[in-house]
Design a protein around this nucleic acid. Structure first.
Length: 446
RNA sequence: CGGGGCGUAGCGCAGUCUGGUUAGCGUACACGCUUGGGGUGCGUGUGGUCGGUGGUUCGAAUCCACUCGCCCCGACCA
């Protein structure tokens, strides 16, 4: 099947680690998990006009079941606003029911014409949060809070710097009032949208009739948000940190943080292996994700290359010479630099090394992004950058869709985010030279 | 969806133009010996509907048509 992915255990473990972090942060902010149906009756999907128009081209339909043609065809969920809102309409009665803070971990299907492994697949895994609030202010605060959680996940766990900001009208979610996103820059100069948070206003509440009775005994439409992040994040990890030897995984989301490679010489299984096993047990007990590679069929050198390709941040070598000195050799995946550490201080030293690698990966990614972020004050400058090095381009924008469309037609770049704070140095629109209302980031995107 | 490229062993490829023995090579895999602190070396083996379907031909990996999948560029896309 085109665009479908199979995720084997090592890759899935990466997803599980970042998923667990997100899930923890959601719960810390009062959200609870729930589950809603995979199929959505067409009549539900049609209720919000802009929403159905936005998703229609990429919906997969079920038209028969049990050997019979269905009276009403069913959409395989491309996102669950429609089905969830239909339930929220029944559940929300009073201001006392609010806020409703639910999240769903699920798979969704979007029939994309062009697929790209991990970045744009027909079926993907994600979480989608759907909340209901009594006021517009609360909904906006929720939207921004969740954007902040995505930023935290990206920067503190995936070690990838992000820009946050609003999307232009042409890029916003179909049915939303406002869409915010975290936006990453990949090493090839293309931008990747890695998480979105939408303020839905009352659009869906009006379409699905989600109303509550306020303290003042007035019937009011509710205010809603939705927000999501997907398996695309795993693709972002791979692209951002990899080098010529393979993957480099940030320690906080690495399924294996350190691999122990016993030096197989002579009767190593009697001399070296027992100590390697002891160290393995001690590190595991210290809460580290370690693996002991005791395969006899491969030489140490082969194992080094193998684990480097898989992105394990630290290798621990132990051989006959180390047994004598009661030490091990730590090797960083970043630069292959070796350090010699005694057995009794290993757990502490390893933890510190892992933290250093986590920080260094972020710094590398930040340096890459900064080196590929340019400012353009004239249209000629913008064209030159897009024809050459690409990357992020900061410039002024008057806010007119016409200017946005012109850039896309000429360069295929789009506005990735509208920055929260306009740069006072960028006074005029990069296209029409009229007064700039916003500072925006243009880039080609995945 | 439009333009271009590519599908031959798990992976990477040669062979296709110019149809003709048993379809090769590297790597991986299995076994034996050897080696072991940067992908050890030698040997013996296993593994193929040549993406699929149909056609042309005495004969098709090779020519033709259709089709499926993948990659790049563009359009589309929260």
């Amino acid at each position: 099947m085109k665009g479908m992915m199979v995720i084997r255990p090592y890759g899935y473990e990466i997803w599980e680690l970042l998923r667990d972090q997100l899930d923890r942060m959601f719960k810390e902010t009062g959200h609870r998990n729930a589950y809603f149906p995979l199929f959505i009756p067409e009549s539900f999907l049609k209720k919000e006009a802009e929403h159905v128009e936005g998703f229609a081209p990429e919906v997969a339909w079920v038209t028969s079941g049990g050997g019979e043609v269905l009276e009403e065809r069913l959409a395989v969920r491309p996102t669950s606003e429609a089905i969830i809102c239909s339930m929220y309409a029944k559940w929300v009665k009073s201001w006392r029911d609010l806020p409703l803070l639910y999240n769903q971990w699920a798979n969704v299907v979007r029939w994309e014409k062009v697929t790209r492994l991990f970045l744009r697949t027909t079926e993907f895994l994600w979480q989608e949060g759907h909340t209901v609030h009594a006021t517009a202010e609360e909904a906006e605060a929720e939207t921004l809070q969740m954007l902040g959680i995505y930023r935290k996940l990206a920067e503190e766990y995936l070690a990838i710097p992000v820009l946050t900001g609003r999307k232009s009208d042409s890029e916003k979610f179909a049915g939303a009032v406002r869409t915010y996103a975290i936006e990453m820059l990949m090493p090839d100069g293309k931008a990747l949208q890695a998480g979105t948070s939408h303020n839905l206003g009352q659009n869906f509440a009006k379409a699905f009739n989600i109303r509550y009775e306020s303290k003042e005994q007035k019937l009011e439409y509710a205010w809603q948000t939705s927000w999501g992040a997907t398996t695309r994040l795993v693709g972002a990890l791979v692209m951002t940190h990899g080098d010529d030897s393979g993957l480099i995984l940030p320690p906080r989301v690495a399924p294996i943080q350190a691999v122990i490679v016993p030096i197989s010489a002579g009767n190593w299984q009697q001399t070296v292996l027992p100590q390697a096993q002891k160290i393995f047990g001690a590190l595991k007990a210290a809460g580290l994700r370690v693996h002991l590679d005791d395969r006899d069929a491969y030489t140490p050198g082969w194992k080094y290359a193998d684990w480097e390709m898989r992105g394990v941040p630290v290798r621990i070598e132990i051989g006959p010479k180390d047994i004598e000195k009661q030490q091990v050799v730590l090797v960083s995946r970043l630069d292959r630099k070796k350090s010699f550490v005694s057995w009794d201080s290993l757990a502490g030293e390893l933890s510190m090394l892992l933290e250093r690698i986590q920080g260094e990966l972020y710094n590398r990614a930040l340096a890459m992004r900064d080196a590929n972020t340019r400012q353009a004050s004239t249209y000629t400058e913008l064209l030159e950058v897009m024809a050459g090095s690409r990357g992020f381009i900061r410039c002024g924008w008057c806010g007119s869709p016409d200017c946005e469309v012109k850039v896309k037609a000429d360069t295929s770049a789009t506005i990735r985010v509208i920055l929260d704070e306009p740069d006072p140095g960028l006074k005029s629109c990069v296209v029409c030279a009229q007064k700039a209302l916003h500072t925006v980031i243009f880039a080609k995107s995945y």
